[in-house]
Write a protein that binds this DNA or RNA. Sequence first.
DNA 1: TTACATTTAATGTAAATACACAGATTTACA
DNA 2: TGTAAATCTGTGTATTTACATTAAATGTAA
Lengths: 150, 150
Amino acid sequence: MSIEKDIKQTAFRSPFHRLVVNLMYTNNWVCDHQARLLKPHGITLQQYNVLRILRGQYPNPVKVSDITERMLDKMSNASRLVDKLVAKKLVDRTECPSDRRAVDVVITQKGLDLLKKLDTQQWEDRLKTLSEDEAVHLSQMLDKLRGSED
Amino acid sequence: MSIEKDIKQTAFRSPFHRLVVNLMYTNNWVCDHQARLLKPHGITLQQYNVLRILRGQYPNPVKVSDITERMLDKMSNASRLVDKLVAKKLVDRTECPSDRRAVDVVITQKGLDLLKKLDTQQWEDRLKTLSEDEAVHLSQMLDKLRGSED
DNA sequence: TTACATTTAATGTAAATACACAGATTTACA
DNA sequence: TGTAAATCTGTGTATTTACATTAAATGTAA
């Protein structure tokens, strides 16, 4: 559905205004879908993203501060997110040997298994309204929107 | 900055995966900027969006249920959002005469003045890395991503 | 009219979030 | 060495959110 119809707004002040509204609307659309898939598995979207960061470095540990840096939504307390994942035994948390301030976090086998199961759900198929080339192009335009130079 | 550099992820499983991550990342980028501009004026992004919905219909009232429908992020209790706006005297809330279950909400002059002041801030200028045509195009691609047909 | 389903807004509650700050450790450097 | 600044994680607290439920008003149909 076009956003005009869905949010019943007929006029935007400018193409830039429509773009911003559309961006938020589309983001919510995507997050809703994702959260719905994750819910039966007992994890939130944020926890899922942390797990994927950890898988990306597996079997190396990742410090809480690194997780914070890489999280998409600016930092909603990686500390407490990791708490939740530890409680579910999806990650292990150990004191970093070389820096006792820091904490090493590693995804567990159980965590890897969960991600593997979620991978197969292929929820991104819902985006196949775009061709692969279009997905690349759209992503590049988002980079440009943010003023990304490289 | 490219998301690869910023979130230090080198590989995405597919262009679709990169697109989804980019969408969330860009949305957060935009929301951060907006929230930062709104904060000195004492309103949140959500409250700002409600005010704009109300201005769109001014001077006609809008029911709480209509606000819920039109909000971008699926419903985080329009009732309580309106509460906050009433407390700040940015909107008026009156019982709907024709249906005593419903509540009519109208933006006040103070609310209109605040929006006018915010309009002039032109924060959307930050998006001028894109041309007007590109903004239109990007918006259309987001529509297509969601499978919007019209 | 009565009975019952539906719509609408508000509320209760647990969880998540934002934001500031505290405590421990490391780093920099005089 | 000694001391101040910076770094890293955890916590306190108020607000916001998600989700279910309640309560009132309306619609519907016997």
